[in-house]
Design a protein around this nucleic acid. Structure first.
Lengths: 333, 333
DNA sequence: TTGTACGCGTTATCAT
DNA sequence: ATGATAACGCGTACAA
């Protein structure tokens, strides 16, 4: 690959002039500018970004680290991140640890060792704590999405999962449902705990009965929720309402309920969480009522916070908390 | 951020010794090594990757540019790429132009200007030609997936769309279907044309009638195929078999056919292309028969070719052609 | 074992 | 308008 020196040599000028032409700066005679531009063109010359970033101490690039790129749950988040970066003319790079912690750590190290001006990390898995402390300790610019880590020097984007869960549960209660259960999402994540807590608090505040079989433990996918719900329907009193900690388990519940010959929402009202519904699901089941998580907006806000921090590294860290919104469709009116 | 000089100063040694410790090289006394390691630890020091790559002329990183990260079609490809990179201890970065050509070009420029050892570009859109010529002209290491661009200095990973389409059509013919139609995928892409050609050739070879209404033009999504098929069912002779240029339009067809009260595969046999089926679809419709495109393997192969080229830049460009595999499920036996 | 000096490719400063 | 020089942070001959 040609370098700036090659171009300078061919044009019989100094590297300084070439650099000025490259960056559209004044101080170059029209003839020289023309000649230099031609030679640049002829050689398909592009300045080396590494060298440039090294001397400028600026990359105009931000990095994103996530658990897994291959999950449609992240689509809206990704769009928000991309649009946010695009709006301020930053490059944005995506990495994923393929659900592997060591790989994720590796990418954090990589992205914070010079090639970006800052990183955004998504994840509320308890295991992520080590990761984020590592980032913060290096005092790299960073924003954490969905991770409520105290005293670490990073901006944070959070969703009020507790209030969201509370609101969903409250709605079911006000619908005069009598036997409300909660199917959790993955309890290895903060969100799992927070949503469970919101459910419990609402039940408590409204003096609703909370029995051991009021809570079914599942994860972020459909299958376990389906199995748990299927089992639950064969024992104890039949629930007439369910708040699920995420949409995917909600669909597991929906499937179990439907297969048991029950009618939704008549026999059982159902509210999910996330608004993470592939179009095709709407054709399969009644449309899912859910607490919408504004992932697009959270992504955009994350990028904006990060770039602001890049420009003002001394600013105190802030936390922006988003609210989930109750979307009533067909599974709960 | 601390630099290697800072560490050296604190340890009262030269930068050389610190560098040796960082890279696990001999030539450092045990005492010095210990002292240096402690200071590195204390400062959370990590070497600057830019400077390192600049002097080493090596980044151990590859970049991927795609149309759109937010499409489940790419999941298997991404997994293949990641696993391939992981296997050889390379970092892999994903960028997407959000379906915007200018953005895609920008990312290609960015990734080929120093921060990676090579790039992989996916796409067979005709518009991509400019892009790939641009890459090749810079003589950056690159591999093109699904893009059959002649005389450009890059390795290529291709799928034999013609043969795949031919095989699908042939299967329908041998099923003794009499009125076979083809619903295309997006004709702005090579794959659209190649699959159409395969269909036409098979029909021709077997002396099957090919009328103007034997071909419905759609795109890579469901809706248009659905509309076209719906219209088609109200006019002309009813088709008894359909080969669709991709799975998503196949599902559009399936929906139209089902809504028209026809039975699949009895009244109409259907074969898609890609094997790009979200789980939930299987619950909604009869499972789709399709030509499986081995995207995972294509991704892995792409990375392997790229890294091989990085190690042997003088090697002649090669092209690896993968074959699609007929997967018979419920929509065609 | 240790350190000096140079180069990677670029931009910025300060002469001329 | 032009160019020599230093600097960014690192690795590595080479010399000591």
């Amino acid at each position: 690959m040609a370098t700036i020196s090659d171009i300078a040599k061919q044009a019989n000028v100094s590297r300084t002039l070439v650099s000025r032409v490259l960056n559209n700066k004044p101080g170059v005679s029209p003839e020289n500018r023309k000649k230099i531009l031609e030679i640049i063109e002829k050689n398909h010359y592009v300045p080396n970004g590494l060298a440039k970033s090294l001397v400028l101490q600026k990359t105009n690039t931000i990095g994103v680290v996530m658990d897994d790129l291959c999950n449609d749950f992240f689509f809206q988040l990704i769009r928000g991140l991309q649009d946010g970066a695009e709006a301020q003319d930053y490059n944005i790079l995506f990495c994923s640890g393929r659900r592997d912690m060591a790989a994720k750590l590796k990418y954090v190290d990589y992205l914070t060792s010079g090639c970006t001006d800052g990183i955004i990390a998504y994840g509320s898995c308890f295991d992520d704590e080590e990761l984020f402390r590592h980032v913060a300790a290096k005092s790299a610019n960073s924003v954490l999405i969905e991770s409520n880590l105290s005293d670490c020097n990073a901006d944070k984007i959070l969703l009020d999962n507790f209030r969201g869960a509370y609101a969903a549960t409250e709605h079911l209660i006000k619908q005069r449902r009598k036997n409300i259960i909660h199917v959790t999402c993955d309890m290895n994540y903060d969100v799992g705990l927070e949503r469970l807590n919101g459910f419990v608090q609402a039940m408590h505040d409204y003096r609703m009965p909370l029995k051991p079989d009021s809570i079914l433990y599942a994860d972020h996918f459909e299958t376990i929720a389906y199995q748990q719900m299927k089992k639950r329907l064969t024992q104890g009193t039949r629930p007439d309402a369910c708040f699920a900690g995420a949409d995917k388990p909600a669909f597991g519940v929906l499937r179990a309920v439907t297969e048991a010959g029950l009618s939704v929402p008549k026999d059982l009202a159902l509210i999910g969480f996330d608004d993470d519904v592939p179009d095709s699901k709407d054709m399969l089941f009644p449309a899912l009522s859910t607490m919408r998580q504004p992932l697009y907006e959270m992504g955009r806000a994350g990028v904006e916070l990060l770039i602001d921090r890049i420009n003002r590294p001394e600013r105190e860290p802030v936390t922006r908390i988003f609210e989930a919104e109750l979307i009533l469709r067909e599974t709960c009116l």
